[in-house]
């Protein structure tokens, strides 16, 4: 046992590329799987949620307007930086989930690989999901996928791999997001935010809130400047129904919570990307 006292980290929110405390000044105690005190995480408020939406909206034109090649490079950079912090995430997952170091390593490796997988999709999804349409007339008619806008994400309990698996597919296509981290194990989300902040992800593309899902999510579900909401991490079916009903106010695109906790190690498929895409069809005249 070293006799040096460790320097602890203050876990704050991640909004617009900065790490503010909750404007409410509140925090809540986060414990390890075996009940030890780990840290006080920020307990985000309605105001924090709104600030995060503003930041996400502000980042949307730049991020969605970036080239697909550029977004792919940025996501790959996230994988690189995450790989470099492997030991830190392993330690956090051992604490948060009570995994053995070997198990935690596998989870971190899968999270890195997931960023790599999604990074490669940035300049391929258009070809897989777009089309040219043989209309009966003198038009070049084509359909392209476009990002839907600002996406609110309630992240699942799986604090790193689950989180990466819901955030990467949202942003790779050009959306920006506000993520509510796992309520019980929020610390890896804030550490991931540190990775994002140092990976050329523009400020505001990903915003991370920690706190009570039942308190924050309703403000995001009813926010008129949020275009879509992913309810994957909402465990309480009644709350999920309320959130989906609130989301109807401005016809948000809604991903309902899965019936069972997904296997985050499995092949993710395209669904989490396509759920937050719009298809735009353009009729371009043909003539001399």
């Amino acid at each position: 046992m070293s006799d040096r006292l460790s320097v602890r980290k203050t876990y704050k929110l991640f909004v617009g590329g900065a790490f503010p405390r909750s404007e409410s000044g509140r925090s809540y105690e986060v414990r390890s799987a075996d009940g030890r005190f780990l840290a006080n995480a920020a307990l985000a408020s309605r105001k924090d949620a709104r600030d995060a939406v503003v930041a996400a909206r502000k980042a949307f034109p730049g991020w969605s307007g970036a080239t697909a090649y550029n977004r792919g490079q940025v996501l790959y950079r996230v994988a690189e930086v995450l790989e470099g912090r492997r030991a830190q995430f392993v330690a956090e997952l051992v604490d948060a989930e009570g995994l053995t170091p070997r198990e935690a390593e596998r989870v971190v490796d899968a999270a890195v690989d997931r960023w790599v997988w999604y990074a490669g999709w940035s300049d391929k999804l258009h070809q897989v999901r777009g089309s040219s349409n043989p209309v009966a007339g003198p038009y070049f008619d084509f359909s392209v996928p476009e990002p839907t806008g600002v996406v609110a994400v309630v992240a699942p309990a799986s604090p790193l791999l689950g989180l990466v698996s819901v955030v990467a597919p949202v942003i790779v296509t050009g959306n920006t997001c506000v993520v509510v981290a796992s309520e019980r194990a929020p610390l890896p989300a804030i550490t991931l935010a540190e990775v994002l902040a140092t990976s050329d992800v523009p400020g505001g593309v990903v915003n991370v809130l920690t706190g009570r899902v039942a308190e924050i999510a309703p403000w995001l579900a009813s926010h008129m400047d949020v275009n879509a909401i992913d309810l994957t991490g909402v465990g309480d079916p009644e709350l999920a129904t309320e959130l989906e009903a609130a989301a109807a106010e401005n016809l948000k695109r809604v991903v309902r919570p899965p019936e069972d906790e997904p296997d985050w190690a499995a092949d993710p498929g395209l669904d989490r990307m396509t759920a937050f895409l719009e298809i735009k069809t353009v009729w371009h005249p043909v003539g001399t």
């Binding site: 089309s131 349409n133 043989p134 209309v135 009966a136 007339g137 038009y139 008619d141 359909s143 839907t148 275009n227 401005n250 016809l251 695109r253 719009e278 298809i279 735009k280 069809t281 353009v282 009729w283 371009h284 005249p285």
Partner: peptide, 25 residues
């Protein structure tokens, strides 16, 4: 969801049609 250039209100079964935002999904 649909942008018509030098034409308007054209439809075709091969051409996907639908809205952004509050025009539906």
């Amino acid at each position: 969801g649909v942008v018509w250039a030098n034409t308007f209100n054209r439809f075709d079964p091969t051409s996907p049609f639908g809205g952004y935002k509050e025009s539906g999904f």
